[in-house]
Nucleic acid binder design. Structure first.
Lengths: 141, 141
DNA sequence: ATCCTAACTTGGACTTTGTCCAAGTCAATA
DNA sequence: TATTGACTTGGACAAAGTCCAAGTTAGGAT
């Protein structure tokens, strides 16, 4: 995420304080924030930043391939800055906690041509679901 | 979907005309409707049915394991009546069309214990993405 | 340095999707 | 066929996201 701003500037981005703050908030590998969470954290540093700008900026980062957009539940989309290392997500059915995980093999390879129906398939997103240790019923406690 | 109502009655469901209509709308294997689409189709048969009842009924069908709830985009959840045969989804990035697909192997098996972080993992949902034939750029046409 | 302007940001109105509730209705049992 | 608790209704509300006209500003041009 460090040189993200550099890459974006090279692509013609105008580097505003708002965009800088949003990019900083997304720093760190294991973050999966909603747009409103990003806005709250950004506003802690730059109080006048608007929701619209956060939505715009997140949308641009997604379009540029710098951030992934997740729809793991039917609620708010989440934004994952770890876009440059292939990974999947493990979601707790209890509390909603999300972890990046690395299954082996390429999930795309499991879909034979006959099951592609003429689509040009480019990606496979896997969401593993289950209960995290904190949400698991305790035995013998 | 035929004997669905029978199964539900056995589980103590009260069989109202509204529930019957919602179940009928969901009939057919390759349907992935939003709640509002279900409501529109249900209202064609039973004009006074309310949105609240459609939401309630869909939620109950999901809780009973008779219908799957999909969050393939950040928009409306979609409801898939094909809950009894394991399958995954292929989604067109252009128009949003959805197809049921059957990859080989069990996607759960690709996640080693070391990548489960103490979660009790019970399911893996795979969303394949790409362009459908209608959205694919045409060559030589 | 400063000017200029297209690009960016803002706040608020608006839309879509979903939830909640009090009051009315009805399916299924006795 | 009477009863009753489960179900349904419509409308208010909430959450998540989009859109727009007006104001601001980054960064190239001078």
């Amino acid at each position: 995420m460090d040189d993200l701003l550099e890459r974006l500037r090279e692509r013609g981005w105008r580097l505003t304080s708002q965009r800088r703050v949003v990019a900083e908030v997304l720093g760190g590998e294991h973050v999966h924030l909603t747009a409103d969470e990003v806005h709250a954290r950004a506003a802690a540093r730059l109080p006048e930043i608007s929701r619209a700008t956060v939505y715009n900026t997140l949308g641009e980062l997604v379009a540029l391939g710098e951030v992934l957009e997740l729809a793991t539940d039917g609620r708010a989309r989440r934004y994952d800055p770890n876009a440059h290392r292939a990974h999947q997500h493990l979601v707790c059915s209890g509390c909603g906690a999300i972890r990046d995980v690395h299954p082996h093999g390429d999930p795309l390879a499991a879909l034979p041509a006959a099951e592609r129906f003429g689509f040009a398939v480019t990606a496979a997103e896997v969401t593993y679901r289950g209960l995290c240790p904190d949400c698991l019923p305790q035995h013998g406690g």
